[in-house]
Every structure is written in C-alpha cells, then in structure tokens.
Write a protein that binds this DNA or RNA. Structure first.
Lengths: 245, 245
DNA sequence: CCCGGTATCCCGGAAAACCGGGAGGGTGCC
DNA sequence: GGCACCCTCCCGGTTTTCCGGGATACCGGG
C-alpha cells in the first residue's frame, strides 16, 4: 500500500464526488480521462451493450478511442467474438483484457480481435462490466500500449467506473431513445402472458379479446423482431427490454 | 474530505485486499462486521435474491441480524413488500433505506415493514444491490439504530459491499448447491436451443438425436420445473439460472 | 385526405408441440 | 443386485400454434 496508491485512491474519490455536479457529458469525459491517463491509459470508452444490431458505434456514451478502430470494429463485426465483451457476460468483477478467457469455438476470431486492437495502440486494457436488474448493460474499457496497476488501484478504478457509468448515462440520457419502442403495448401484453406460460386462448381470456387477436399480435411481434416462434420472440423481447419478468 | 474519511477508505481497501485470502465464511463475516461497526452499524446481512419461494432465510449467505426479525420477516412475507428489496430492482447504486421510494399500491404494507424493522433495532440502514449478467442477484444490507455516513464513506462501503458479496458467494459456495442442478445436461441443451428459436426437429438435428428424444427432454424439463409449455420452461430455466443466453 | 400503424376479428389448412403411455441401455450409489 | 436417474427412441391421438390470406375501425401525421 504505497503512498502513490493512496493518492490515486483519494483522487478517485474526489473525482466521484465531483461527478454529481456535472451536466455536460464532455465535462465528464474530460474529468475521467485526466485521471485514468495517470495509470498509463491513452484511451477509454463507456458503452452500452449493443442489442441485436451488433454495432457498438451508436451505443457509445463517451469515448476517447483510436481513430478508425471503432469503424473497423463495427464493420468487421468484432463485437460477436470480442473475448472482453463475452467475459462481461460471465463476471461482475473488473478484469484486464488479457485475463478474458478464449472460448474454444471462437478462439481464432477472438485472437484476431485482440491482435488488431494491439495494432491500433491498445496492447493492454482493463474493463469494468456494468450490470443492472436486467443483466449485462455495458461497460467501461480503458486501454493503452502498456498498463500497470496495483490491486488497490484496480479497485479504485472499479469504483470509478461504476460512477462514471452513472454519470455518463445521466448526462447523455436526453439523446438516446426519444420514445422508441419497437413493439406496441398490446404486443408486449401478449408476450408477457406467453412468458408466464399462458396459451393463446388463456391470454385471450385474460386480456378480454379473441384468440385470433392474440395470434395476430404474436404474429406481428414475430415479424417485427424477426424471430421464428413465440418462445424465441419472448426471449428476444426480454433482451430488448420490451418486456420484463 | 476529512482525515477520518480517508482513514476509513484506507481500511476498506485493506479489508478488500485481505478478503481474497479468506476461505472460512465466518472469517469473512467477522472481518466485515468489525469495519462496518465503526460506522454505527449493529447489523449486516449478505443475501441472495430469494427465487420463487419468497423466503429469505435459506438465501442468507452471511449475517449478523437481530434475533427473531428474520423469522418474523419470512413468516409474515415481508419480502414481497419490503421497499428496500423493491428498490434494488430499480437501481444499481447503493441507497439508505429511507431513500427507497414507497410504491403507491403497496405503500401501507411497505410502511409496516419499515416500522417493524425499527422496532427490532433497525431504525436506519444502507443497502448495496448486487447485479450480474442475469439481473438482480441479491444485496448487502447494513443496519443500526442510527447511521451517519459521509458521501465518501458511502462510496467506500459500496465498494466494500461488492467485494464482500464476491467473498461471501465464494466461501459459501460449497454449502449450497452440492452440485444441485435441477435439470440434466441434455435438458438444458434442448432448452437453450428452444430459446434460440429452434423447433424440436431442428434441435434434434443440431444435437444429433431424434425428435422424440428432444420432445422427451422438453417434457421432463417441464414436469421438473413445473411449467406449462416450452416458452414458460425456457423463461423459468433462465430465472433459475439453469440456462443462460 | 390518404397512408401507416394499431387493435380487433375471421377462416382453413399445415405444422408443430403436447400428452401419456412404453421400452432398452447406461451409470452410479447403497 | 436393486434402485434411481439419465439418455435414447417409439407410437397414436389431441391440442396448440403457425401461416396466409382476408376484413373493419380508429387515430395521427404529412
């Protein structure tokens, strides 16, 4: 527990104290970047979990990120194989990029993602996954050529990441999702019923409409989301946060 | 940013450093209690989210909790109305018990929960919700007659709670769930396929078995979990963490 | 005023899932 | 050697869902 660590921890807490007062996302971005730069990070990004579209770009909340890397990442579809992303689904604790395990079936693609990241100046990184009551929501990634952090600093960065996420989500809240829901209210109703195990007939009774109406709503929901049957639709609607349990 | 705060923060980080080495849950419990007692807390509990049974008791990982309160809480079914629990579903940030909003439709029951907690020596409390990739998982609650924490200390307790949760889950992992999965491997396989929208026939091809086998597995999973159809089974299996997305 | 979206209802035929049996072979435990 | 699972496969009959066409009505924006 060196003095340098304690100083960094104190600065992190100071920064968190200050986040509440900020309302401009760019202020948040600058504040955070100034601090993490001291750990040797050149880049950082705060991002929501891309839903099925599988593109990170529109989901970035704040970022100082290498030019071209993001566009390339989206174009090539790295998101599907990025071991850092996949590890976020399995752990709540922050981890260094090189600690993210390679899954056997996607190992070669995963290695390519990491290799190309290195070529873009991100040889090492640290990721703080963000989860809420609905599951994995996004994360904070820090990256640079080389990174060295003591365990204590990692924990300070962990806490910092959590509050940075809140601040980023708060200050950018206006821009995203004006009202944009994919499904209609009735479609969400029938899917909620289906999730509870009701048949179309039971759902019809429950909602006070005919079976055909229920079937129509299910069909429309299916075509909207692009799913293959009711089970699939319910699962996807859940992931899209159209319905909840 | 008083010296007292900084001292507490340093102690919290020391404690977190030490948690990794502990393997006995009682050591974890004692270590944490010693520290939080300094904030004026007399009690604390680390608990998983009760699944459908709606009883906290079996889900407590570690606790120093008033005699009788837990039994009463379970017997009366407070869990359903506890505003602290309900707020955990909405927020990722820690909060003081009195900051948990009362929902209009359950306000009277909620008030009663808080009232009775006060009678058991818990007039004030602080809760750290825990979420993972599957959603709300549980929480850490600290309570006492009266509590005063500066914002910085609250954040230190936040971080402490996260690591305390990990340590509690790790050290108590053996006791609960000896291997105890409800479903068999194959049953989980077919449910995962169903969640991806595969028909029984497609699942059969994918797994290299006959349709009848798939149907049998689905049927057995249904009767085991007690669900009504495949959609319902998939959803419940997801909640029970038998399968994941 | 028309168009798109929503909500409601209808039909018939095809496909899929569900039900309740049975049954053989495997593993592992007491 | 039973006993309890698990995995595999089979059957016939029933229920439910899915598919593809419809139709009517309401509402709000361009």
């Amino acid at each position: 527990m060196s003095d340098a660590d304690d100083a960094f921890i104190r600065q992190s807490f100071d920064l968190i104290d200050g986040l509440d007062g900020l309302s401009d996302p760019l202020d948040v971005q600058k504040t955070i970047f100034d601090l993490v730069a001291r750990c040797g990070f050149s880049y950082f990004a705060i991002t929501r979990l891309p839903q099925p579209s599988e593109r990170i770009g529109p989901n970035l909340l704040l970022s100082v990120w290498p030019d071209g890397w993001l566009a390339h990442y989206d174009r090539v579809g790295h998101y599907r194989y990025d071991p850092v992303v996949r590890h976020c689904f399995r752990t709540t604790e922050p981890f260094a990029w090189n600690e993210a395990p390679l899954e056997p079936d996607t190992a070669s693609q995963a290695r390519r993602v990491m290799e190309e990241a290195r070529e873009h100046g991100m040889g090492a990184g640290y990721c703080v996954p963000i989860h809420d009551a609905h599951g994995f929501q996004g994360g904070i990634s820090l990256a640079g050529e080389r990174v060295e952090m003591t365990p204590r600093v990692r924990r300070a960065v962990h806490l910092l990441g959590l509050y940075a996420w809140s601040a980023a989500a708060r200050t950018t809240a206006r821009r995203r999702k004006p009202g944009g829901r994919l499904l209609s209210a009735r479609e969400r109703d029938v899917l909620s019923c289906a999730a509870q195990g009701r048949t179309q007939e039971e759902t019809a009774d429950f909602l006070g409409v005919s079976i055909d109406t229920v079937a129509t709503h299910l069909r429309n929901a299916r075509t909207k989301i692009g799913t293959r049957n009711t089970t699939h639709t319910v699962i996807e609607a859940l992931r899209l946060r159209e319905i909840s349990l």
